[in-house]
Computed example of a mutant assay.
Amino acid sequence: MPEPKEPRIRVARLADDDALAVLDRAVWSPLHAVMPEPQPPYTPFFDDHHTPEDHLVAELDGRAVGYVRLGFPTPLASNAHVRQIQGLAVAEEARGRGVGRALVRAAVEEARRRGARRITLRVLGHNAPARSLYEAEGFVVEGVLPQEFLIAGEYVDDVFMGQPLV
């Protein structure tokens, strides 16, 4: 049996818009989403606030199977030294193949490359798989907003995680 291939990580291109929009809708779940499930008419994946340059794409066999969005936590100049993971998605069929881990590692390296001193993220308290992945990649809990969201009839904590890059 051949060894599973490592995902190839690259910066997104405008041409990825449709594939990433479809992926985003396919993986929507109350486990990680605070927004309602997307409904038609669908909006483009990229917009003025989320450009291709803000995304890293994971490919397996030449097909986009995941992405990570790397942005700024605020628009403030005093906060410009921090980058934030603002979205992570992996196609169901690619899970368990190291795609999420490769994307998180690539996001950390990209944040460093862009001169960030810290990287942060927010994750829902009930999302144990994501929290475990982030912890394994060096993120630590830096704060919790208890019962911050009401999702599918349950109150869910908003967990802030981060790590220094220097």
Score class of each variant (00 low, 15 high):
residue 53 E to V: 08
residue 30 P to K: 12
residue 70 L to H: 08
residue 20 L to S: 04
residue 53 E to R: 13
residue 44 P to D: 07
residue 77 A to V: 12
residue 62 G to Q: 02
residue 79 N to Q: 04
residue 34 V to L: 07
residue 70 L to A: 10
residue 28 W to V: 08
residue 57 V to T: 11
residue 70 L to G: 06
residue 33 A to T: 07
residue 92 E to D: 15
residue 43 T to W: 08
residue 43 T to G: 15
residue 83 R to F: 12
residue 35 M to C: 02
residue 34 V to F: 10
residue 25 R to D: 14
residue 57 V to K: 12
residue 75 P to F: 01
residue 61 D to N: 05
residue 39 Q to C: 01
residue 46 F to M: 10
residue 54 D to T: 13
residue 35 M to A: 14
residue 41 P to S: 03
residue 59 E to I: 03
residue 73 P to S: 05
residue 74 T to Y: 08
residue 27 V to T: 15
residue 64 A to N: 10
residue 43 T to C: 07
residue 51 T to Y: 06
residue 94 A to H: 03
residue 94 A to G: 14
residue 22 V to C: 03
residue 35 M to D: 07
residue 20 L to H: 09
residue 93 E to R: 13
residue 21 A to N: 08
residue 77 A to L: 14
residue 49 H to G: 12
residue 41 P to H: 05
residue 58 A to C: 05
residue 84 Q to A: 13
residue 27 V to I: 15
residue 93 E to M: 10
residue 84 Q to M: 11
residue 24 D to Q: 12
residue 34 V to T: 15
residue 65 V to P: 03
residue 71 G to P: 07
residue 31 L to C: 03
residue 55 H to Y: 15
residue 94 A to K: 02
residue 67 Y to W: 15
residue 67 Y to H: 10
residue 26 A to M: 06
residue 32 H to G: 10
residue 43 T to Q: 13
residue 90 V to I: 02
residue 69 R to G: 05
residue 45 F to R: 09
residue 23 L to G: 02
residue 59 E to A: 06
residue 28 W to G: 10
residue 37 E to A: 11
residue 28 W to N: 10
residue 76 L to F: 07
residue 89 A to R: 12
residue 93 E to N: 01
residue 85 I to F: 09
residue 94 A to F: 13
residue 33 A to G: 04
residue 55 H to G: 09
residue 89 A to G: 05
residue 22 V to D: 08
residue 92 E to W: 11
residue 50 H to I: 08
residue 24 D to P: 01
residue 94 A to D: 08
residue 74 T to S: 12
residue 24 D to N: 13
residue 65 V to Q: 02
residue 22 V to Y: 01
residue 30 P to N: 01
residue 81 H to I: 09
residue 94 A to E: 14
residue 32 H to M: 07
residue 90 V to G: 09
residue 40 P to H: 07
residue 88 L to M: 15
residue 66 G to P: 00
residue 33 A to F: 06
residue 90 V to K: 11
residue 64 A to V: 03
residue 81 H to Q: 06
residue 52 P to N: 06
residue 32 H to W: 11
residue 84 Q to T: 13
residue 81 H to F: 03
residue 71 G to N: 08
residue 33 A to D: 13
residue 58 A to E: 00
residue 83 R to L: 14
residue 28 W to K: 04
residue 67 Y to A: 04
residue 44 P to A: 02
residue 91 A to M: 00
residue 22 V to F: 02
residue 35 M to E: 14
residue 85 I to Y: 09
residue 81 H to V: 08
residue 54 D to W: 15
residue 50 H to D: 12
residue 29 S to F: 15
residue 43 T to L: 15
residue 51 T to K: 15
residue 66 G to C: 01
residue 65 V to D: 11
residue 91 A to L: 03
residue 49 H to F: 11
residue 67 Y to R: 02
residue 72 F to H: 15
residue 81 H to K: 03
residue 35 M to N: 05
residue 84 Q to E: 14
residue 72 F to V: 10
residue 31 L to H: 03
